[in-house]
Write a protein that binds this DNA or RNA. Structure first.
Length: 154
DNA sequence: GCCAACGTTGGC
DNA sequence: GCCAACGTTGGC
């Protein structure tokens, strides 16, 4: 099993929103590296840290799980969507996604400051400056340590 | 295929 | 709101 970190702006879609809906298609990813993670590398059952970006404070808010196999992001075909991609066709899709389902909401946000201050977790990609990638792989040791610091048992 | 300009992300 | 980082675009 692989582990991941997925970013979301809580004003747009938060861990609480995921808990409410249960399962959500991860639409709107328009970066090839992030797409490749979903399209090629993720497997159903993989666990992901749910990170709140552009938040006060930014940090990890909970855990999600890859809920199924990848499929084309429907928003790329929708001219009314802000994620519409005129170069994509149903016969030749460019953007793929997976659904995520809610696993756990942490009792508190594990803040970016705490991650950076931690001798082990400071190596995480999300801690490096200039990392804008919305989906990143996470080492199993990092995943376990985050869960233990957040008091979550997974 | 180089690279300057531009747009976006996201912490601060 | 500022701006560093960096991916993408498009002229050549």
């Amino acid at each position: 099993m692989s582990h991941w970190l997925i970013k979301s702006e809580p004003d747009v879609f938060s861990i609480g929103d995921l808990a409410r809906v249960g399962r959500e298609p991860w639409t709107g990813v328009r970066n090839y590296q992030a797409r490749n993670f979903m399209w090629r590398d993720m497997r159903p059952g993989d666990l992901a840290l749910f990170y709140h970006s552009n938040a006060k404070p930014p940090g990890i808010a909970g855990i999600a799980r890859v809920a199924g196999a990848p499929y084309p992001d429907p928003t790329q075909f929708d001219p009314a969507s802000e994620y519409h991609d005129p170069k994509a066709t149903p016969e030749n899709p460019r953007w793929w996604l997976v659904d995520f389902e809610h696993v756990a909401t942490f009792g508190r946000i594990l803040t970016l400051d705490e991650l950076k201050a931690d001798a082990i977790l400071s190596a995480m990609q999300v801690c490096q400056r200039g990392t804008r990638l919305s989906i990143t792989p996470v080492a199993p040791t990092h995943f376990k340590r985050v869960c233990s610091l957040a008091g979550a048992s997974v």
